[in-house]
């Protein structure tokens, strides 16, 4: 019995190599090859996807199968699609030399993939410029795309996203435990519930609406930070931007110690405590106060931005 299934897996893995097109197709100018392939996979499979440009859309479904549909860019060499039950590998293959710096890079190599995966699968997606969308996947999700935007909607167990310039729009449900987002100039919009959150950008603005978030850290060099949400227990909530303004909107009955400082900007506070000059030196504003039971730690710091602490 076992021998048979092994043989099957072997057959799948070895035979499942290059599935779509041969060299002559690839060489045909302007031809965009379409793809429609399905492989069996376990419901907890680890799925890796590589697509250099174009788009990747991943959708969770209630089947122990992975299905790839879409079209491949005319400069690509085909699709590799392997599955051995627990591991699924999907790669749009591109020529190894001379693909950088080419004009119309995205038009030549851009491939649009729609991939259906078991909803509890772990998904890892890497790309240079593809936009990425992941919907209804509950496993761990890791996305890296240098220039593409990212949309995630679902309750991934853990979510890691890295982009250079793409904007991020993330809706994470209550099942998500950890969210880590890194972006350069792209903006980040996040709605999340009950998870730990870490967001870091260079220039991108950060907007987070949280329900019962645990330890949360939002940081930027030049982007603004806008946080709306309640605070839970003794968790830490850090908001730091060098140039950007920081707005933190909290429930009126929040229980926290709040420490806010701005070197060159002003501080507005709805909770009724007045800022004072920084105690250590002579410059800068600092506001340090306790509300409710003083449980959560809130730390707000900006160099030249202004700070608003408001009641929701």
């Amino acid at each position: 019995m076992r021998k048979i299934s092994l043989a099957l897996i072997l057959g799948l893995a070895l035979g499942g190599g290059l599935v779509t097109m041969d060299a002559t197709d690839a060489a045909t100018p302007g031809a965009r090859q379409s793809v429609d392939e399905t492989r069996h996979a376990s419901r907890h499979a680890d799925i890796e996807v590589y697509n250099v440009a174009g788009s990747v859309r991943v959708i969770g479904w209630d089947r122990a199968e992975v299905q790839v549909t879409g079209t491949l860019g005319r400069g690509t060499e085909g699709l590799e699609f392997d599955s051995d039950e627990d591991d699924v590998y999907i790669e749009v293959e591109v020529p190894s030399g001379g693909r950088r710096g080419e004009q119309q890079f995205d038009q030549v190599y851009g491939s649009d993939l729609e991939i259906r995966v078991p909803e509890r699968a772990n998904v890892e997606i890497d790309s240079l410029s593809a936009s990425v969308e992941v919907i209804g996947v509950d496993g761990e999700i890791t996305i890296t795309t240098v220039r593409g935007g990212v949309i995630v909607d679902g309750s991934p167990r853990e979510l890691n996203v890295n982009t250079g310039s793409g904007d991020l729009a993330i809706e994470a449900g209550a099942g998500t435990r950890e969210i880590e987002l890194i972006s350069g100039s792209g903006s980040v919009e996040l709605n999340a519930e009950g998870s730990e959150v870490s967001v870091e950008t260079v220039g991108g603005d950060i907007t987070v609406v949280g329900l019962g978030l645990l330890d949360t850290s939002l940081g930027s060099t030049a982007g603004s930070i806008h946080f709306t949400g309640d605070l839970v227990g003794t968790n830490d909530y850090d908001f730091e931007s060098f140039h950007g303004g920081i707005t933190v909107i909290l429930p009126a009955d929040v229980s926290a110690v709040i420490d806010a400082s701005s070197f060159a900007g002003g501080i507005q506070n709805d909770f009724g405590f007045e800022p004072r000059s920084s105690e250590r030196g002579k410059v800068g504003k600092r506001l340090d106060f306790e509300v409710g039971g003083g449980e959560a730690d809130v730390f707000i710091k900006t160099f030249s931005g202004s700070i608003e602490i408001r009641k929701s």
Partner: peptide
């Protein structure tokens, strides 16, 4: 890994 592009998380 076999993918050719980036692994920023590791870099971070």
């Amino acid at each position: 890994v076999r993918g050719q592009w980036v692994a920023l998380a590791a870099a971070a």
